[in-house]
């Protein structure tokens, strides 16, 4: 119990200021490691401030001091009891070549679920097109896809003017931002226990399957591959990875077979979700550039076999990157 409040505050303020200065430094330099002596002092100051808060809580006349101490103890509590890694300096190359592919592989099962959802959608869309091709007016939301594929190919191949001239950068930016929004939305729909994410993937699969079957049935397979592969080789996997992130989120919410609380499950996945969606955003930036500057050129300007080879090459590099990158450092960690 405090008898003389002013004396108490005057005596303790020195310790509070010291703790505040230490907290400021730790928050300013998150990668700084305290020496054992400093660590012990920090813990002592935290305990002292906690004890002071307990004392002053019984004292009705000092709401400001109590609030200040609550804030101080709260900050120190977070610093001492936080077990997650502190955010270090930005290491974008390490993140891209190690963390991102490792995170992808860590949640491989979610990726397969995502792939299955889009494949089921594609099979459904393709089947509908085979059964009744007139449904493409409903299935395909883009006007340039609703006509006869052969007419479009004829038109694209006969044009000798660059229809995107003077608009490539803005078209590319539009594609990047639009697709990134779709990807974020697919991730966010994980909050519907994954149902929304699966519907989103299924719907994208339906469009993809319907377009593919429409062009194949019209005998325009080479055009289809040449048009879609250069950007689709990155864009479609990017949407799959966004779906993967959504399913990871849903899995944390549902928590089948995980003997930890919901809060802990969500806490454990938060870094992975941010890694996946950041990787997806980078992939979509690349896909947007390729779609605007490369995919829109057809024969005779750009031979299809070059476009198809480019798309296959991208797909191969992506598969190798996601499957192999960062493995060496993982082994290193195990040896250590």
């Amino acid at each position: 119990m405090i008898i003389d409040l002013q004396k108490f505050i005057t005596e303790e303020r020195l310790y509070w200021s010291e703790l505040e200065a230490m907290l400021d430094r730790l928050e300013r330099k998150p990668d700084e490691k305290l020496a054992l002596g400093a660590l012990e002092r920090f813990h002592y100051l935290y305990q002292r401030a906690s004890a002071d808060l307990a004392k002053i809580s019984t004292f009705s006349a000092e709401p400001n001091t109590r609030q200040y101490l609550e804030s101080l103890v709260g900050r120190a509590f977070g610093e001492i009891h936080e077990t997650r890694d502190k955010p270090h300096r930005l290491r974008p190359l390490h993140w891209f070549f190690n963390t991102f592919p490792q995170t992808f592989r860590k949640h491989l099962r979610a990726f397969w679920i995502s792939l299955i959802a889009i494949l089921v959608g594609a099979a459904f869309g393709g089947f509908i097109m085979i059964v009744d091709s007139s449904t493409k007016q409903i299935l395909l939301p883009f006007s340039h896809l609703q006509g006869d594929p052969s007419d479009r190919v004829k038109m694209e191949e006969s044009t000798d003017t660059d229809r995107l001239k003077g608009a490539k950068s803005s078209f590319s930016s539009f594609l990047m931002t639009h697709n990134t929004k779709v990807a974020i939305f697919t991730l966010a729909l994980g909050m519907t226990w994954g149902i929304g994410t699966l519907i989103m993937l299924f719907y994208n699969g339906v469009i993809l399957g319907a377009v593919a079957v429409d062009y194949v049935l019209a005998g325009e397979s080479a055009f289809l591959l040449g048009w879609l592969l250069p950007h689709g080789a990155i864009e479609i996997p990017a949407i799959l990875l966004a779906g993967q992130a959504g399913i990871v989120l849903a899995s944390a919410l549902i928590g089948w077979g995980k003997p930890i609380s919901l809060r802990m499950r969500l806490r454990k996945t938060s870094n992975d979700l941010v890694t996946l969606i950041s990787g997806v955003a980078l992939m979509l930036i690349w896909a947007g550039v390729v779609e605007a500057f490369f995919s829109q050129y057809h024969e005779p300007i750009m031979p299809y076999h070059i476009k198809i080879a480019f798309g296959c090459f991208e797909l191969l590099i992506l598969a190798l990157f996601l499957g192999r990158a960062g493995r060496k450092s993982a082994y290193k960690n195990i040896k250590l």
Binding site: H81, I184, L187, N271, I277
Partner: peptide
């Protein structure tokens, strides 16, 4: 703030802002 009074992480800030979409 972190719901358990711990230090607010960058990933938490990103997730709460991205989920504004829904």
């Amino acid at each position: 703030m972190d719901s358990q009074g711990l230090r607010l992480q960058f990933s938490q800030v990103v997730i709460r802002n991205l989920l504004r979409f829904i």
